[in-house]
Design a protein around this nucleic acid. Structure first.
Length: 224
DNA sequence: TAGGCCATCTGGTCCT
DNA sequence: AGGACCAGATGGCCTA
């Protein structure tokens, strides 16, 4: 997926050009310090009032302008609540970005969406857990006994209904398609099933998992 | 142009 | 009372 270019408040704060075109309500600073404040909103409001008529009209018609501008205490509370909500959502997005950063690298133009990130992370954790479990079992079992995929069970308590569909473990085996974040949890359990070879079924799930995202590069040695 | 994704606003609810 | 959280609504941007 190619990156989307969207105007975020943090982007706009440093751009007087953009500042002149957008409502002051979307220009609250969003910093890690959490300095969104009523004061800042008021400063921006004052700033907006200094614009010419044409610019003011643009701001009136701009995106996310308050639908009902309430004067007085109620309006003040609403603006503060908006600031808090904005900051809260930015924190949530920061957490999502942090999560993206620790997931296996994807091609440059393949930034995961929010839902894809969550599903990918869920699958990834599952794969890691299975890898550890299989490694532990293989350490105590003869190497001629590769673990059949059907023995795998999802370690998570997340129900299929919570994720709209089944976990990867519900499939009879692993395929690249099973681990594509774009179709994980969206296809029916058992779909795209194929019979793995004895060798394939003995490979740690994480290897399949990583390979499915990193092209043909076999990261087996890297991840074990 | 339709649909997906996203940021933001908003009012309601719950909690401290 | 005020803050956190949530879900619905809205509108912009982008891609197929």
């Amino acid at each position: 997926m190619s990156p989307k270019v969207q105007c975020t408040p943090s982007d706009l704060c440093s751009s007087t050009h953009s500042l002149g075109r957008l409502s002051p309500n979307i220009l609250s600073p969003v910093s890690e310090a959490g300095d969104s404040s009523e004061v800042y909103s008021e400063v921006l409001h004052e700033k907006a009032q200094t614009f010419s008529g044409g610019e003011a009209a643009l701001m009136q018609n701009s995106k996310h302008k308050p639908r009902c501008e309430k004067p007085g205490l109620r309006g003040r509370r609403r603006m503060k609540a908006n600031d808090r909500e904005r900051h809260r959502m930015h924190n949530l997005n920061s957490a999502l970005n942090a999560l993206r950063s620790i997931l296996p690298a994807l091609p440059e133009d393949a930034k995961l969406t929010k839902i894809e990130t969550l599903r990918f992370a869920h699958n990834y954790i599952w794969a890691l857990t299975e890898t550890l479990r299989m490694a532990d079992q293989l350490g105590h079992t003869p190497d001629y006994l590769p673990l059949p995929a059907s023995n795998l069970s999802s370690p998570t308590s997340v129900t299929s209904s919570e994720w709209d569909s089944a976990s990867p473990a519900d499939s009879c085996c692993w395929t690249s398609a099973d681990f594509d974040p774009r179709n994980s949890y969206t296809s029916s359990p058992g779909k795209n099933c194929k019979t793995l070879t004895r060798h394939e079924s003995s490979v740690f799930p994480l290897t399949f998992y990583v390979k499915s995202f990193c092209g043909e590069k076999d990261l087996r040695n890297t991840w074990q």
